[in-house]
């Protein structure tokens, strides 16, 4: 289990990195935290000719308030996402999700950008980025573009990223004050990739009825699934226990998990129902009437 040979590049600035990625094209693989790429290299499941190490790009490790949002650099580590006061205050859903990734040592290295680009369908950060309606800031030598994460994630470990492009940051709109959140995942052991997960945000009207619902589920397909119809029909409803249970049942029925000999579809569906119900209940309990 030793990596195949590669050439190593260690750009000292973003522009140098983008230049390298542009020049090297498809032969290059950016290396962020290395917590997913590392095992793939060691097992020779990935064998790029060139590794472009992003770890010197300290300019990509930041949490910055931008108007009504939070912009977080692509090289920001999970541990910082989980513990930075700014994130915990404004995006507690993101902080909570980040705190459940892998293990303590893994979270010291793993990065936000790396996780989004790796696009593991069971991963936490793509799911919460989708439900938080985050945008990915994508840079290349040619310039910058912005993509909605939900569109950026295309399939299992497949994203809308051209050779030479790099995700430099994610922009998270901060939900309105009083928005309640819930995040639930189920894994066999602590730190394993989730078999199923759910994230929800609830805004309440003064009446206590739902003003806006956002919910997404993971483990139900190739990418996190945002449940638009359920979200629309929730507006005006009073989210008591019965409602949460009913909606969760609808979510499970709507979900279309992939066949996996180890994880039967009915089991995953049941988990999605349970987790969705818990996420909704938690979101409601944390929501404050505007």
């Amino acid at each position: 289990m030793k990596p195949a040979p590669f050439s190593y590049h260690r750009p000292g600035s973003l522009s140098e990195a983008l230049g390298l990625l542009s020049d090297l094209g498809a032969d290059a693989k950016p290396l962020a935290g290395g917590q997913s790429l590392g095992p793939m290299l060691n097992m020779r499941l990935a064998r790029p000719a060139h590794i472009v190490d992003l770890n010197d790009l300290l300019e990509l490790d930041y949490v910055r308030r931008t108007g009504d949002g939070l912009e977080i650099g692509g090289m920001t580590r999970h541990h910082r996402l989980a513990s930075a006061p700014e994130v915990r205050r404004t995006l507690p859903l993101l902080a909570e999700a980040a705190s459940t990734i892998g293990h303590y040592a893994i979270r010291q290295r793993g990065t936000l950008g790396g996780s989004i680009v790796h696009a593991d369908p069971a991963a936490q950060l793509p799911l919460v980025a989708v439900v938080l309606e985050a945008e990915a800031v994508i840079r290349s030598r040619a310039g910058e573009r912005v993509a909605v994460v939900a569109d950026f994630l295309q399939s299992i470990m497949t994203v809308d990223l051209a050779d030479g492009e790099l995700v430099t940051a994610l922009r998270f709109p901060v939900p309105p004050t009083g928005t309640g959140w819930g995040f639930e995942l189920f894994s066999r052991r602590r730190g394993d990739f989730a078999i199923a997960s759910a994230a929800a945000l609830i805004e309440l009207a003064p009446s206590g009825a739902i003003a806006a619902l956002r919910i997404a589920i993971g483990g139900a397909g190739a990418v996190p699934v945002r449940l638009d119809e359920i979200e629309h029909s929730a507006v005006g409803e009073f989210p008591d226990g019965m409602w949460c249970a009913t909606v969760a049942r609808c979510i499970a029925e709507a979900a279309n998990p992939e066949e996996d000999p180890q994880i039967p579809v009915p089991f995953r569906r049941e988990l999605l129902q349970t987790l969705a119900e818990r996420a909704l209940t938690a979101a409601h309990s944390r929501a404050a009437v505007a």
């Binding site: 289990m1 030793k2 990596p3 190593y8 260690r10 290396l31 290395g34 917590q35 590392g38 095992p39 060691n42 097992m43 590794i51 190490d53 770890n55 541990h79 293990h103 303590y104 040592a105 893994i106 010291q108 290295r109």
Partner: peptide, 26 residues
């Protein structure tokens, strides 16, 4: 050598890191 067992954990700038998922050149 795939980051699960934790036996190879060292500190990099004071923070724990899997040395099996880190290249010395970094």
């Amino acid at each position: 050598e795939h980051g699960v067992c934790g036996a190879c954990t060292v500190l990099v700038d004071g923070a724990p890191a899997r040395s099996c998922l880190t290249f010395a050149v970094q």
